[in-house]
Amino acid sequence: MFTNASNFTNDVDLTFAIIIGISLFFLIGLTALMIYFMVRYHHKRNPVAKDIHGHVGLEILWTVVPTILVLVMFYYGWSGYTDMRKVPDDAMKITATGRMWSWTFEYENGKKTDTLVIPIDKPVKLDLLSEDVIHSLYIPAFRVKEDLVPGDTNYMWFIGQQLGTYNILCAEYCGDRHSYMVSKVDVIEQQAFETWYNDTTQATLEGAEAGLALLKQNACMSCHSVDGTTMVGPSFKGLFGRNTEIESNGIVKNITADELYIIKSIEDPAADVVKGFSNIMPAYKDKMTQKELEQMIEYIKTLK
């Protein structure tokens, strides 16, 4: 509590503290009263009960007092929240995209990463997009969370106020690997950020290395392992040249995984589904250039 990790952390924690304080008072007070009555008015101590039908004054009292208290709580919740929706004009814009089951952050200069890197003490606005189902971007330490709704736009903003690395989690259930849809936000010094921001060496990777980077960027690795473990999809390890049993339009057949097969599986994964796996992969048709496809295959070939 009150770590000041983001500009919202302390306000939200104050709202928590106020509500929990009031709640504990009532929980402990009412429970104690209940137990006291059960002991004090036990039939052995109080053999004759007294019928009391009610008391208008008390009814008014315990209507008015809770009303005032909940209005106070409403006020704190509301005022803290209003700030969360008011983005300062000078906020740095980043597009956050979620898909089953990974995150991509795209900066204004076109730089794309799978972890969020932000400068300290600078407002950041995330435009939230989803490519498939609903996800929810949640940074517990910052006390922020908003849903990524496909076909809709949503946003959030915050200021990272403490250097460090914090978890980004997906809070809206999104399928098999929901709990593995994890990333990080790195809050770093302004200068370090600028160096990082202007470094675009990633684009100059070649061959298998570029292929690996592409597989990471496009969330392939959320479902396909490179070490032979079976996750949601078949492992990339030993994939090239493997004899595979597939289901194509309800017909089971054996094929050898060659370049054409892999390209087809990327562009139209529903056409041939490897036996024992579900047909859940999104199609990447027209999202990859021929060169990118070749680079990815080149990398897969190295996994023997």
Binding site: Y76, G77, M84
Partner: peptide, 23 residues
């Protein structure tokens, strides 16, 4: 039910709910 109801107050308060929503 007191605990259930009182914890619900946090869900009603916008700023606090954002943090615990879907947890």
């Amino acid at each position: 039910f007191l605990i259930g109801g009182l914890t619900g107050l946090i869900n009603g308060a916008l700023a606090a709910d954002v943090h615990v929503h879907d947890t």
